[in-house]
């Protein structure tokens, strides 16, 4: 498991890949950060990191699939899947090793964004409890999206296709709460509550306000587990169906 984790990390960090993704992330973060902190058009000055995170999350749709698209698609393309499958490892270890590598790159992205709150804290004041909760929520949401992206990467041999499908799926998940709130769906309360249960945004809202609720943590962690188990099934299924 550790060797797969190490190899995947190398493929991120020994190439410009991780740095470019992180740079893009920071660029977008700066974009919203500057826009938000410098905004004095309102009557009362209002700035919070949670709001910046809210805006940055939309960028997840583009960044995370790029991060995860190669996870399994490239293994298939280069025929190295055979190597992993015939080595004395089980599939669970392969999936977890790869997931942890993706998470590590994501943490690297998050860690580099700490630059902004640190500077703000030096020059002004930051509500720490809110910031920490927002980071936690941000991390969990990202971890869930990585699990989804990794799952989609195991469906196909083409990494580009994995990225595009991933973007679509993540887009749906990001705006599913807006969809649930439309008047059309509101006619059917049962459907509305069922659809709303999949929404991550209201759960992130609690984190950004400084609440850590067990139900929200359980939501994200169970979503991650479901995706990883599905990932396992999809890999095993392909072995059985090959031909």
């Amino acid at each position: 498991m550790f060797s797969i984790y190490k190899k995947d990390l190398q493929s991120f960090f020994f190439t410009p890949f991780a740095y470019i993704v992180t740079a893009l992330f920071l660029f977008l973060f700066t974009f919203y950060f500057n826009g938000s902190i410098g905004d004095q058009s309102q009557a009362t000055y209002f700035f919070s990191f949670a709001n910046v995170f809210y805006n940055v999350i939309i960028m997840f749709i583009f960044l995370i699939p790029i991060l995860t698209m190669r996870t399994f698609a490239d293994e298939r393309k280069f025929g190295t899947e055979v190597l992993l499958m015939t080595s004395p490892l089980n599939v669970v270890q392969i999936i977890i090793g790869k997931y942890l590598a993706n998470i590590t790159v994501f943490l690297f992205m998050l860690a580099s964004s700490l630059f902004f709150p640190i500077f703000t804290a030096i020059k002004g004041e930051v509500v720490m409890s809110q910031l920490i909760c927002a980071y936690l929520g941000f991390f969990l949401w990202g971890a869930m999206y990585i699990a989804i992206g990794q799952l989609i990467s195991s469906f196909t041999e083409s990494s580009i296709l994995a990225a595009i499908i991933g973007e679509i799926v993540m887009f749906v998940f990001l705006f599913i709460d807006d969809f649930a709130m439309t008047k059309f769906i509101a006619q059917y309360p049962a459907i509305q509550s069922a659809v709303y249960a999949f929404a991550a945004q209201p759960r992130f809202a609690y984190f950004s306000q400084g609440f850590i609720r067990l139900s929200d943590i359980v939501f994200f962690i169970s979503a991650i587990i479901v995706c990883l188990v599905w990932n396992y099934i999809s890999i095993e299924k392909r072995r059985w169906n090959r031909g």
């Binding site: 060797s3 190398q10 280069f78 899947e81 055979v82």
Partner: peptide, 30 residues
Amino acid sequence: KKNLGYLPEIPPVYPDMRVREYLSFCAGLK
């Protein structure tokens, strides 16, 4: 699988790795 070494029809190599790096990775896998 611990007792097996397998060379498939298409060698399972990562194009972006160096030879030594690749073998070191495989040694870890095994």
